[in-house]
Nucleic acid binder design. Sequence first.
DNA 1: CACTGTTATCTGACAGTGTCATATAACTTC
DNA 2: GAAGTTATATGACACTGTCAGATAACAGTG
Lengths: 193, 193
Amino acid sequence: MARPRIYDQQVRTRLLTTASAAVAAGGEQAVSLRSLASEAGVTTAAVYSLFGGRRQLLDAVVEEGFRRFAAHLDAAARTDDPRADLLELGLAYREYALAEPDFYRVMFGTPRTDGVQPDSPATGRPTFAVLREAVARALGAGDRGHGPDPEVEALRLWGLAHGLVSLELAGLLEGDADSRRLRYMGALRSSSL
Amino acid sequence: MARPRIYDQQVRTRLLTTASAAVAAGGEQAVSLRSLASEAGVTTAAVYSLFGGRRQLLDAVVEEGFRRFAAHLDAAARTDDPRADLLELGLAYREYALAEPDFYRVMFGTPRTDGVQPDSPATGRPTFAVLREAVARALGAGDRGHGPDPEVEALRLWGLAHGLVSLELAGLLEGDADSRRLRYMGALRSSSL
DNA sequence: CACTGTTATCTGACAGTGTCATATAACTTC
DNA sequence: GAAGTTATATGACACTGTCAGATAACAGTG
């Protein structure tokens, strides 16, 4: 071995945290390697050493965001009424997006081109997995073979939730926040299983 | 009057066209005032004189994008089967987004904060208007008062289409393009009126 | 004709960005 | 000690948006 690392896992975590805060505060464009590095007490070279560059750093931030998102959704209540749970999941979805809009935009706004492994935490599919489970529960394990396909239904609901939330974040929906929430719930309910 | 303008409507249009092409080719970050200006045969000052800055130029590009999008949707066939027309509209929606993904991302990815006039072409609500009409036709003019609210149904369908398309553009959906198209149609059909 | 006032465009500088070649520092092994 | 090896630091490069100040081009007036 030679010179010991000081750009280690701890620095990596610190950079990731700082970058996440910057994204949450002002979106992708608020992430400047220089300010990031100085906040973390290192030089910009650390980003290149630990991540490979700005792009990969942001990829890591997105990955982290999806992890937190999945945790937030996973925390939604699981009662013995799976239909109600599904609605609750939808509300949790919107809650997260509205709580950190810039983060949400970065997570879903950047095309994931870099070799996406199926079911890697980076892909956002684990998010989908939570939903898929909830849908499967709501459809019941009984009538497999006939009836609606859980996979398709889950995708439909994901699309609906993500779409409505995105439109809201884009500022394209009329009315105040309360009226928007009501319409969101209404759309979810009338589109449920 | 004083010195005659040469940064006129024509230059404005040229800049808009060039900027649109840049957005379509590589998203917002592909728009550099210097390259833009040199391509249009002017200096960067023209952008400030005609638009006010980069942000406003991009706003204008988005506005133009929404106009084209609305035109594309409006061109969808109108037969005497309003349900089928609605599905066709959904397909046209996805078609446009996949044809110009970077453009679509910029259109729906930037929060529209600048004093959005209701029903100004910039807001994307005219897009929604085309859909709303189609939904109203599909629901029939007969059963007003009871039955589903056209407004709510239209919003639900917009959310669904936009959501599924966005997820696809984000690279979050599995399968090849054909399988994705089929699932899109399936979700649309099963969520229709 | 020259001069003034007014407006529009051009120039150049400023402060900032990501990137990375090259120099330097810090360790292990001989 | 010296040599070898690897990690970090520095500084330069080529960009970027922005805009104050210099310059150019006209209309109107004397």
